[in-house]
Each structure stands twice: as structure tokens, then as C-alpha cells.
Design a binder for these strands. Structure first.
Lengths: 206, 206
DNA sequence: GCGAACTTACTGTTCGTTCAGTTAGTTGTC
DNA sequence: GACAACTAACTGAACGAACAGTAAGTTCGC
């Protein structure tokens, strides 16, 4: 952890605290991550996270907000591309491939999102602001690609998120017991193919 | 919480402590459930859980073991019935309906299993014994019903568990934001139909 | 030199564990 | 069948560790 930054820069410190907190909250959970550990990993003192963010709870909320904002910023343009491609060519499989591939890749890049969302779900969404909890970009793309078919759109949305989310969420238990690693490139490629197959068949039938 | 039992009965006390611990661990998580709360809910003192189980960690492990044993005891005969039915009649959809319906119903009856497994997955399976982490009964039934088709069996297994598990796991976040309740009878019925549709189509194509 | 960034020592609280003591239940003895 | 001797169940107060929050003090950038 190189300390080669300008000695005092509130913006840099804030970001490094958020990075450290994201890592520790997602790996150890809220209670077992301490402010001292977060400070140490960020290269600052115990008291600075509270000084900047107001307290442990507020810091946790800030981590979540940053992750969710980043998710939408990353997925929105890709989902829009998938929609445009589908509406221009009518090729449902190609559109699904683009969408699912982007989604799974993002989740693999930012595993903290999967872990923190899983923790929020189990803790009754204590720290989550009201509003949609899954990506609105992915949701609207699925809606457009599904078309006006009679299929239950909510079920389809739950299934899509479940298929992409679950392997990463349960990587340390179910996947590990199977000798698979959801973070590996091989597994991700096989998973993408499988998910696209599933969704394509479901949509074709409706 | 009626206190009408024989004044001293270790077996009853053990069971009531396990019940209380299952409830509190699954709802609040390991760290936020205290031994005093567990004792109070079980109608015993602060010290008794440790006296019987050796400590908080060991109590948590005992809760998990009991849940997993109960899962297998409940699902094994139903999965066997599904396999027999499929091998006698060749009716894949009927077999899937029986299997998926049993699985989802069990998860709804014992939501603590879903919650605790979710927590274990996020905490690196700290308290879980080695070995398979999903129901071996459901797994073997899926294997038999899928037949020797070329489909990737691991992917199919992950998908099956994900489709049934995920709505309950994320009931407080994603489902709540959609205005759905995974514990309700209507949602469960719709979900069962959807999951069977998905699996049937995937298997039919392979 | 002033204000913001940052540290460090400290406070109050929470909680798991321990253990000395108490009581209910059982066994053996006559 | 009653009474003593003994065991196991159970209590609750006390201890010590861990930790979030605080505030007084220090240092840096401008």
C-alpha cells in the first residue's frame, strides 16, 4: 500500500477510505469489519473515516451508493446498445448475448456488489434507500427484448438476475463444493452460454 | 412462550435453545444475535446455551447441522418419488413438478435455511462442514430426470437451485421493490410454474 | 496564521465466557 | 417409603476484550 500521494488531500482520502471499506464490509460483513481495520487499509487513522463520513453506518451507506451508481453507469450504455441492436436486426440471441455478457462481467469485476447486496437482502435492506434494487438498465433491456409476449415479466426478471447473480453469491459454498469457480474465465464463459440458452428458449416459447 | 414443561429436562431445553438460536441467527445474523437474547427467547438463562453447546460458535454450528439434516430427511423421499414416477411413466414435466414443488415448499417452510445458507456463502462457509452444500436428494433427482443428454449437468444444477432459492433469499430487497412476496401462496404457485417451464424447455432441447 | 485534515488517547458500552452457588431430580440404604 | 447422598441442570453476577464514537491536540496547505 504505497503512501506516495500528496500528504493531505481530502478527496483522495475519501476515496481510499471508501475503497478499503468496500473491501472489508463485503468480505467480513458490517459487524466484523472495524473502523480501525478500514483506516489501516486506507493508510489513515482510526478516527478519519468517522471524521469524513459521520460514522460506521453512514460510511456503509456511502459504499453502497457508490457501487449502485457505478453499476448503472456501466450497464446503462451497454443495455441501450443491446436494445438498439435487437430493434434494428431482430436478432434476439445476439442482444441477449451482449446484455448477459456485460452483466456477468460487471458482477465479476465488482464482486463487492454481489456480496453487499446479498448481505442487505438478508438483513432486511437496513441500509438501502427505497427504490428499485436491481439494475434498471438490465430490467428495461429484458423488457424490450422480451416483447409483448404473455410471459410474466416479473418472473422473467427474477430469473435473469438469479441466473447471473447466484453463482457469484454462492461461490464459496455450492460452487466450491462442486470444484467450480464462478470468478474464472472458463466458468463465466460457460455460464453466459447457459444463461443465454435458457432465456432464449423461454422467450421463444412465449 | 408457555413455561408448562417439566422443570428440568435437558432434552427439551436443548431443543428450545436450538429453536431460539435458529430464529435469531437467521434473522439478525451471527454477530447481532446475542446469547442473552437466545436464552431469553428459549426461557432459560444467559449461561445455559454455552453450558450445553460449548459456546456461541458451536451453537451456530449445531443449528446449521440440524437444518441440513432436516432438509435431507424431508426431500429425500419426495425426490425418490419423482425419480420413480419419471422412470415409470417417462413424463418429465410431472416429475419436475413434484420435485420443484417439494423443494420450494420446504424452503418456504424453513426460511431459516435459506437465510443461514446465504450468510454462510457470504462469510466463506466459516461454519459449514466440508461436503456437498446443496441437497443431494434434489441433485440426484435432477441428474436422473435430465438423462444422459449432453447438457452441462453442473450448470443445470446451479440453475435449478438458483431459480428456487433466489426469490426467497432476496425477498426483502428485489422482490419487495417489485411489490411481490416470495412467501405468499400465489407467488409460490406462479414461481413453481415458471421454474418447471424453464427446466422443461432446457431439458427438451438437449 | 487560519482553517481543514488528521492523529491519538480516552470513554462508555456491549457481549461472550466463566464460575461459584442453588435447586430439581435420582439413586441407594435401611 | 423416607431420608440422606449425590448428580446434573440451571442461574446470574462479574470479568475482560473489543470496538464505535469523541474530543483535544497536532500538522499541513494555502
Amino acid at each position: 500500500m504505497p503512501r506516495s500521494r500528496r500528504r493531505r488531500d481530502a478527496d483522495v482520502s475519501r476515496r481510499e477510505i471508501l475503497d478499503a471499506a468496500e473491501e472489508l464490509f463485503s468480505q467480513r460483513g458490517y459487524e466484523r469489519a472495524t473502523l480501525s481495520q478500514i483506516g489501516r487499509r486506507a493508510g489513515v487513522s482510526t478516527g478519519l473515516p468517522t471524521y469524513f463520513f459521520g460514522g460506521k453506518d453512514a460510511l456503509y451507506r456511502a459504499v453502497l451508493e457508490r457501487l449502485i451508481a457505478e453499476r448503472e453507469a456501466r450497464l446503462e450504455p451497454l443495455a441501450a446498445r443491446a436494445i438498439r441492436s435487437f430493434e434494428r436486426t431482430g436478432d434476439r440471441r445476439a442482444a441477449l448475448e451482449l446484455l448477459i455478457s456485460s452483466y456477468i462481467d460487471f458482477l465479476r469485476e465488482r464482486p463487492a456488489l454481489v456480496r453487499l447486496m446479498g448481505r442487505e437482502a438478508l438483513d432486511g435492506a437496513r441500509h438501502l434507500a427505497p427504490g428499485p434494487r436491481h439494475s434498471v438498465a438490465v430490467a428495461s433491456a429484458i423488457e424490450r427484448i422480451a416483447g409483448a409476449g404473455g410471459a410474466d415479466l416479473d418472473q422473467l426478471m427474477i430469473t435473469t438476475v438469479a441466473l447471473c447473480f447466484f453463482p457469484l453469491e454462492h461461490n464459496d459454498t455450492m460452487l466450491a463444493a462442486m470444484g467450480r469457480d464462478a470468478m474464472s474465465d472458463e466458468f463465466a464463459a460457460a455460464r453466459k452460454r447457459h444463461v443465454v440458452d435458457v432465456l432464449e428458449r423461454v422467450l421463444a416459447a412465449s
